[in-house]
Design a protein around this nucleic acid. Structure first.
Lengths: 228, 228
DNA sequence: TATGTCTTTCTACAGATGTAGAAGGACGCG
DNA sequence: CGCGTCCTTCTACATCTGTAGAAAGACATA
């Protein structure tokens, strides 16, 4: 059983790499065998049909992502610790300083997904697109569920006008910023990913959106980020 | 020549449909023939290699999208006509009313891409992902170039602090909102696409982001959009 | 009408792919 | 040790796919 569980992980991880590097088209039983350095036929034995293989990949991605978001736990904990003086009840409203801190943390998570986690992020988007024509995948891929929950709670605490709606908008916008950098859409002018400048730019964007969704005026910041 | 040009359009359009419905994996020479109701082998004759076929699809998508964005021409023209009294030079700063108008227009364009243009939008995202591992595609797919230009100009006119940067952020966020609705990520709670409620929600989101990026305070609006 | 040049259609074929089942082997249990 | 069960590996095969080239047809010009 332990061996079997391990095999599952080995296979799905190799599959994720393939999807990230070659797209959904590169996801074949034999290719996974080769990538995972398993004897030919292994993947086919574990996941008899291609659909089963894809589902396994999606499941794995969903698990990994959920763990990521939960671990990051953008709101809560440290924030309360950050402004210690306001150790009120959890409904204590978030101030601009808190939002600033949160923006930084969200940007950090995104940055991680763009650098060390780039493979998984690419695979995730590929699967999201795949889920468009395979509805059963969408149920597995509870995409953004964790982040959505956090965003709503966060905005509620910040006193946003409509936390449910705004939470969705926030997640969508932040995902947009992520995707934009992922595919390097504005590659001509954009700073190289992982650079300090890229990080700062991302931070700035997240900050702006977060404050907007929270319905709070942006506080004056010492460094109006200049670029170009 | 006219015939040939027509064939190109027929083939690439059929290919786009396939990509939208089945993903990149569904894009094969023979499948395109079938979909376009052309004799078997036609697509293979026009685009000998698969790479050539993909490039043709990407090229077509880029053309169609550019035309869309240019036609929409979110800024300019009507806006100047809208507040007639301020028929100043084109550098006349945009006021909140103008931004409101523009937000509505952007939302309208997005709505169109989500309903009647859904096929093309899906295909575009598939190609964007494909461009990740085929750099040569990225050059063709000048993704968001037109919209980015418009966004920068718009924000510059609105007096944003850093139009270049903010323009990119705006486009990224708006694309995020588009993608979110496209894949129906929050499908459980989201209103059905094309509905009036969906449109209103989208409008609200765009409005918020636009004002944030323009660095302008949101004016009080009579209808604080409630949902849920 | 004969000829040459395109375009279009058809055919071939090597290799990849999805899927199923047989063969082989480890391992615990009587 | 013999046996049954599960996991693993190997093999088979029908189908699909990419790609190339031959055959057939349209069409203008001499």
């Amino acid at each position: 059983m332990a061996v079997r569980r391990n095999r599952f992980a080995v296979i799905t991880d190799a599959a994720i790499e393939l999807v990230a590097e070659l797209g959904m088209r590169g996801l074949t039983h034999r290719a996974v065998d080769a990538r995972a350095e398993l004897p030919l036929g292994s993947t086919s034995a574990y996941f008899r049909t291609r659909k089963a293989l894809i589902e396994a990949v999606v499941r794995r991605l969903a698990d990994l992502d959920r763990a990521d978001v939960d671990r990051a736990d953008v709101d809560r904990a440290d924030v309360d610790r950050a402004d210690v003086e306001a150790t009120g009840p959890p409904t204590e409203p978030l101030g601009p300083r808190d939002l600033d801190l949160l923006a930084g943390r969200i940007a950090g998570l995104l940055d991680q997904w763009l650098t060390s986690g780039r493979t998984r992020t690419l695979a995730r988007y590929a699967c999201l697109l795949e889920a468009t024509h395979h509805p059963e995948l969408r149920d597995i891929l509870s995409y953004g569920t964790a982040s959505r929950t956090q965003a709503r709670a966060l905005l509620a605490r910040a006193g946003a006008v409509n936390p449910e709606q705004r939470g969705n908008h926030l997640v969508a916008c932040v995902d947009g910023l992520l995707f934009d950098r992922l595919v390097g859409a504005g590659s001509l002018t954009a700073p190289p990913p992982g650079s300090e400048q890229s990080r700062a730019d991302l931070h700035q964007a997240v900050r702006t959106v977060l404050f907007a969704m929270a319905g709070t005026d942006l506080p004056e910041t010492g460094d109006p980020p200049t670029r170009g």
